[in-house]
Lab assay of single mutants.
Amino acid sequence: LGPKYVGLWDFKSRTDEELSFRAGDVFHVARKEEQWWWATLLDEAGGAVAQGYVPHNYLAERE
Results as ranks from 00 to 15, higher is better:
D43P: 00
E17V: 11
K32E: 04
W37E: 00
L8V: 07
A60P: 03
D25M: 06
L42T: 03
Q51R: 07
E17D: 13
F27S: 00
P3L: 11
A39L: 03
P55M: 05
E44V: 09
D43K: 02
R62Y: 15
D10N: 07
L19C: 04
L59Y: 04
E17C: 15
H28A: 10
L42R: 01
V26Y: 10
F11W: 13
K12P: 05
G47V: 14
E34Y: 10
Q35T: 12
H28E: 12
K12N: 14
Y5A: 01
Y5R: 01
V26H: 08
G46R: 03
A30P: 03
Q51C: 10
K12H: 13
G52A: 03
V26T: 11
K12L: 13
L8S: 03
K4P: 06
A30W: 15
A45W: 14
T40R: 04
A60F: 09
P3D: 08
G2A: 13
T15D: 08
F11G: 02
H56K: 14
E61P: 15
V54G: 02
V54C: 11
A39S: 04
A48C: 09
V6S: 03
D25T: 05
E34W: 08
G24A: 02
G47A: 14
A45E: 13
Q51F: 09
R62P: 09
V54H: 03
G52S: 01
R14Q: 12
A23W: 05
F11A: 01
R62G: 11
G47P: 02
S20L: 04
L8N: 03
D10G: 05
Y5M: 02
G46E: 06
W9R: 13
V6R: 03
E33S: 09
L41H: 01
S20G: 06
G52N: 03
L1Q: 13
E33G: 14
T15C: 15
L59C: 04
E63L: 12
A39T: 02
Y53T: 03
L41W: 03
F21W: 01
Q51G: 04
S13T: 02
E33H: 10
W9P: 01
S13P: 05
R31T: 07
A60L: 10
K32L: 04
E63D: 14
H28C: 10
L41N: 01
D25V: 06
H56V: 11
Q35G: 13
W38P: 00
R31L: 07
E44F: 09
K32A: 04
G52Y: 03
D16I: 10
A30N: 15
F27H: 00
A23K: 13
L59F: 04
L8A: 03
G46Q: 05
G24C: 08
R31M: 08
H28F: 15
R31A: 07
L8Y: 04
G24V: 02
D43G: 05
Y58N: 02
N57M: 08
R31H: 09
L41Q: 03
Y5C: 06
F21Y: 02
L41R: 06
G46Y: 05
G24M: 04
A50F: 05
E34S: 13
E18D: 04
A48V: 12
A60W: 09
D43F: 06
F11D: 01
D25A: 09
W9Q: 08
L1S: 12
D43T: 05
P3N: 10
A60Q: 13
W37C: 05
E33W: 09
